[in-house]
Every structure is written in structure tokens, then in C-alpha cells.
Design a protein around this nucleic acid. Structure first.
Length: 553
RNA sequence: UGGGUUAUGGUGUAAUGGUAGCACAACAGAUUUUGAUUCUGUUUGUCUAGGUUCGAAUCCUAGUAACCCAACCA
């Protein structure tokens, strides 16, 4: 119970800040840009930011970083809020960087008045040229020494829309020879005559990330502003602006983003998969988006446990997706209702079972007795899985084969007497005899069998579409491979089959999760209806036989 | 020829000068009316080279490697 869990570097910083009295409570924020759907990488950040204020006194705000009207949309705002809620977190306030546009404008004025910002007429190309390179210093813009008065007037005109897009920018006056490229007079404001999803047409100048994020943090009294490693060089500018503006000193801390094997995680790449129709949409169950994973059947608990387990640090990483699957199975094993479904059917006829007779058996709904039982109809003709029969049994095979016996889960032991093939040589039916005294729960037969297989009574079975998903990519790290990452898409990432289900599944509703015995975990798709059942395979079960068979091959 | 960040088993993460630990994976075995679950056991690691110290993953010196920085994106 009281296992000592060591602290990650952020928890150490926070505990030190709390202990020293620097803060009595802490404040974090999750700052998505509403220009795409949230993915597993965001989940990591969400768990971190909200998790910290669950562990320590304080709160977490949800703040949309909406400073670029060209790419941002309300649709994304809604999906982001839904995903965070689904993951199980609650924000204190829902805020927008655009809420602060007026205040940010005042901040800019203050900087100009302190002669720490100026209006630059240079074109984008000229600015880039004068910026220098990481190894060569930049040179001052010819507009750098305008008077405070002139800057004030020009900035005002930028605001009132007197200039076209790109004609002028407001830049901080720092040092064009600075080692840190971001300190070479960074652009603070640019002109964009564009409609904003919240402020409409009120503004035609918009602050850049660096002039919005830290200031928003400060306005909200965020104590620990956590972001990913690529923002490390921004921290110097972040601190510079807070110092010159003389506002609440929020602090930025950086951690390494988590990478997952067999997938891609950048918005740009995910967008390509959607627009090029490699997947059906942002919520395609193969996507590493929160909405995709939800549709696939992942549970919030499993994602949270995974994020907790991988922790945070500052080093590069590539986390095995198998670990995520482990936490998925761990949670689903204890919560998913059991059911039987035959995915690739093969007919079994029990020749010594009376024609037209039906029996009902009880089968447990889960490993825990409290899950209860359900009824399964049994009759002369059943569907079993094709892969549970081998004409010529392999070594260590303990399923069906000519002359071999298995138990039908929760029912009788049967023995295979013969089988039939179609003209193409495919096995189309197997004929068995059952042992009446081997009935599940009252077995007096004395027979010992090694294998137990699942089955569905043919007459009472339900037909359903089952979508068998596999990993989206064939290689561990598609982004680091030669050529385009899309060349490494797994062509077998989706296989659709028509399956037979036990009748208890008749009235399932979307998002319900089941374990189909011996086949894996499945989730009812959002498009499923009682008239057309659709299940998504969330993940397979661990399969020791598959491993054994592979070893021999 | 710049600046920044980071190096611990196959993967992720601990150890804050004192027995290199945990989880996943892998391997072996037990149990099992799911070849699942559960249980037991095993293998594998401190980037390199020097130095300080009774003692170094940890401190010092010099290397090496990876990633980030030259968007009016965030």
C-alpha cells in the first residue's frame, strides 16, 4: 500500500517550492492549440499537468492557445474538451489566450514605451536574412532605432488596420548578436486580416506564441508552466518578457515528449493520414488520437496508468506500445464482460446429439464471481473457430484434430470423428460425438482434455461485423525510416470479418466492452445498431500458442 | 567554426558518494473448463578514457553520440 514511489524531477521542484514557502499552492495549465485533435502525446501532458494538482494543492486551467486565427477552429475546441473529460480530468477554468488580447496589447505598448520594442517594415525575407544563422550573428534592422513616439503611432495604425498583411511587425529590441536565435529581436505581433473563431473581426494584429503564452501564464498566476523540450530555448525569452513587463513570474519547465513505437504522433502527419484517406477520420480506431483510442475501446484508466508508469524525464525516448497494451489488458481483464464469438467460422455437427434439441448452459461473465453468469443455448450444430481444428495436428497441439477431444467451454467434451472438405480442398465441416456425462459442472466422464474451445450455437447465433485492427505501421519508428512515413503503413491494419456471436449480445450499445473468449477484447462501435452489430477489436489476448507455433516455423 | 538539452538492461524509469532497484518484454516452470488470468524462478544495464575517494551511475577533466535552435506556427 505505502510503496515509496520516487519523485520525478518536476515533483521534486514543486516539493522544494512548497517546502521553502515560495508557493502555498501551485497552478498548472494545459494549453492546446485548437487546430487538431488530441493524441496520446497530449494525454501524457494532460495526466502530468492535472495529476500534479491532484497530488499537490492547487488547480489546473484549460487554456486554448488561439493566437493564430488562420488554423484554429471551434470544432477542435469541442473535441479537446470532450477528450480531457473522458480521460477523467476537470479543469478549474476554461480560458483562451484570445481572452487576453486587450491586455496583451497594453503589454506591447508598455514595451514600446520602455524602448524595448519597435515596428519593423522589413519583409519576411529581409528579417530572415538579417537574423543570421546559429553560427553567424545577425545584423540590426534599419528600422530598429525609430523613436518611441513613431513606434507608438505605427503600432496603433497596425491595430486599426491601415496596413496589409505582412507589411509590418512589432519586434522586441533585444540583441541581434545573441547566441540564442530567439533573442535576436523576436517578432511579437504580426498583421493578419483574418477572422478569429472567438474575437471575430475585432483584431487584425495577433500576438506570436512567445508574446502570448508566458503572458497568459502570468495573468493566470500559473506557477509551473510545463512544456516539451523544444521550448527550452524559448525560456530565456519567456523570462525576459516577464522581467521587462514586471508581471507575475511564472516559470517554464520542460520535459521530453513521449514517443510510441509503431505509430506517428505529429499533428501534421496525423492530418495527412486523414486527408489522404489512409484512415477513416481523426477517430479511426487505428489513430493514436484520444478519440480514436476511445472508439477502439481503450479505457481512460489504462491510459492514465500507462502515463503514470512511463513517468517523465528529459531524455529522448521511444516507448514500446506493448506497455500501453499491457495496461489496457490489465484493466480490461478485470472489467470486461466475457462472451463467445466465432470470428472465422467452421461448422461442427454433433452427430450423436438429438436433432432439434436445445439445452441451456450457464457460463461465467468474468473471472470474479460477482460478475455473475449468463445463459448459452446449445444444439446439434455449432460454429467453432477454423483455427481450432488441424487435419494434421502439430506437436503440442491440444485442440481439435481427427480423433482428438476438447471441451466446449461451459458445455460438453466432444471427440472429432471425421471431417469434410469442399471441392477446393478446404475443410468445411467437422463431425463430432459428445459425451453426455461430461456436462460442465457435473462431469462424471473421467475424461481429461487439455484444450477448451469457444463455440456458438448456429441456430441462435447473431451475425455481426467485426473489425480486426492491428498496428497502423509495419516499423517501430516510421518517421526515422528512409522516404515517406506513409510508405510504412501496415496494409493489414484492418481486416473485416462477419462473425457469429452468442445471442446474449443482441442488445449491446456503443462503447460497451467485452472479452470474446480466447480472441481478445472488443468494443461496440459507435455506428453499431441492433440491426447491424459492429464490434472493433481493441486488442488481442496474449497468445502463448501463437508464439510456440512461430518458434517452430 | 555557435548555443542549448540529454546519455543507466531490448524498452521505460529509479538510486541525490555506500548492496544498481522496479515495470514491461524475453526465457523456464506451476495452476487453469479462455494456450487468457494468476503464481514462481531466470537472463540482460551505468556512453568512452582518465582522475578524486576506503568507496563513484552519482564528483572532476577530456572525449563521443543523439536531439533541438536560422516559421510573420505553436
Amino acid at each position: 500500500m505505502s510503496e515509496e514511489k520516487s519523485l520525478n524531477f518536476l515533483e521534486e521542484i514543486i516539493e522544494a517550492d512548497l517546502a521553502s514557502g515560495k508557493y502555498k499552492t501551485i497552478a498548472t495549465r494545459f494549453p492546446p492549440e485548437p487546430n487538431g485533435y488530441l493524441h496520446m502525446g497530449h494525454a501524457s501532458s494532460i495526466c502530468l499537468n492535472f495529476g500534479l494538482t491532484q497530488k499537490y494543492p492547487g488547480f489546473t486551467n484549460l487554456r486554448f492557445d488561439d493566437t493564430n486565427p488562420v488554423t484554429e477552429e471551434t470544432e477542435y475546441v469541442e473535441s479537446i474538451k470532450e477528450d480531457i473529460k473522458w480521460l477523467g480530468f476537470t479543469w478549474k477554468e476554461e480560458l483562451y489566450a484570445s481572452d487576453y488580447f486587450e491586455q496583451l496589447y497594453e503589454f506591447a505598448l508598455k514595451l514600446i514605451q520602455k524602448n524595448l520594442a519597435y515596428v519593423d517594415d522589413s519583409t519576411s525575407e529581409e528579417i530572415a536574412k538579417l537574423k543570421g544563422t546559429p553560427t553567424e550573428p545577425g545584423t540590426d534592422s534599419p528600422y530598429r532605432n525609430r523613436s518611441v513616439e513613431e513606434n507608438l503611432q505605427l503600432f496603433e495604425k497596425m491595430k486599426t488596420g491601415e496596413f496589409p498583411d505582412g507589411a509590418k511587425t512589432l519586434r522586441a529590441k533585444i540583441d541581434m548578436k545573441h547566441m540564442n536565435m530567439l533573442m535576436r529581436d523576436p517578432i511579437l505581433y504580426r498583421i493578419k486580416h483574418a477572422h478569429h473563431h472567438r474575437t471575430g473581426d475585432k483584431w487584425c494584429i495577433y500576438p506570436m506564441y512567445d508574446f502570448a503564452h508566458g503572458q497568459s501564464d502570468s495573468i493566470e498566476n500559473i506557477t509551473h508552466s510545463i512544456c516539451t523540450l523544444e521550448f527550452v530555448p524559448h525560456r530565456e525569452l519567456y523570462d525576459w518578457l516577464i522581467e521587462k513587463l514586471e508581471i507575475f513570474p511564472s516559470h517554464q519547465y520542460e520535459f521530453a515528449r513521449r514517443n510510441l513505437t509503431y505509430t506517428v504522433m505529429s499533428k501534421r502527419k496525423l492530418l495527412q493520414l486523414v486527408t489522404d484517406a489512409h484512415v477513416s477520420g481523426w477517430d479511426d480506431p487505428r489513430m493514436p488520437t484520444i478519440s480514436g483510442m476511445r472508439r477502439r475501446g481503450f479505457t481512460p484508466e489504462s491510459i492514465r496508468n500507462f502515463c503514470e508508469a512511463i513517468g517523465i524525464a528529459k531524455r529522448e525516448n521511444m516507448v514500446d506500445i506493448g506497455l500501453l497494451e499491457f495496461y489496457l489488458r490489465e484493466h480490461l481483464n478485470s472489467t470486461a464482460q466475457r462472451a463467445m464469438a466465432v470470428l472465422e467460422p467452421l461448422k461442427m455437427v454433433i452427430t450423436n446429439y438429438e436433432e432439434g434439441k436445445t439445452e441451456e448452459f450457464l457460463s461465467e461473465n468474468g473471472p470474479d464471481e460477482s460478475a455473475g453468469t449468463r445463459k448459452l443455448p446449445f444444439s446439434r450444430e455449432l460454429w467453432i473457430e477454423q483455427e481450432d481444428f488441424m487435419e494434421v495436428p502439430a506437436k503440442k497441439w491440444f485442440r481439435l484434430a481427427p480423433g482428438a477431444m476438447v471441451r466446449l467451454k461451459s458445455a460438453y467434451i466432444v471427440k472429432c470423428d471425421s471431417f469434410e472438405k469442399d471441392t477446393g480442398g478446404n475443410i468445411k465441416q467437422i463431425n463430432c460425438s459428445y459425451f453426455p456425462d461430461s456436462k460442465s459442472g457435473s462431469d462424471n466422464s473421467g475424461l481429461q482434455v487439455k484444450g477448451t474451445i469457444h463455440w456458438v450455437s448456429a441456430a441462435q447465433s447473431l451475425l455481426a461485423e467485426v473489425r480486426l485492427y492491428d498496428r497502423l505501421f509495419k516499423v517501430e519508428d516510421p518517421s526515422s525510416e528512409e522516404g515517406d512515413f506513409k510508405d510504412y503503413i501496415n496494409p493489414d491494419s484492418l481486416k473485416i470479418v462477419q462473425a457469429y456471436l452468442e445471442p446474449s449480445l443482441k442488445n449491446v450499445s456503443p462503447q460497451e466492452r467485452f472479452q470474446f473468449l480466447r480472441k481478445g477484447y472488443f468494443c461496440v462501435d459507435k455506428d453499431s445498431t441492433p440491426g447491424k452489430l459492429i464490434f472493433n477489436r481493441t486488442t488481442t489476448l496474449k497468445d502463448a500458442w501463437a508464439k510456440e507455433a512461430k518458434k517452430k516455423a
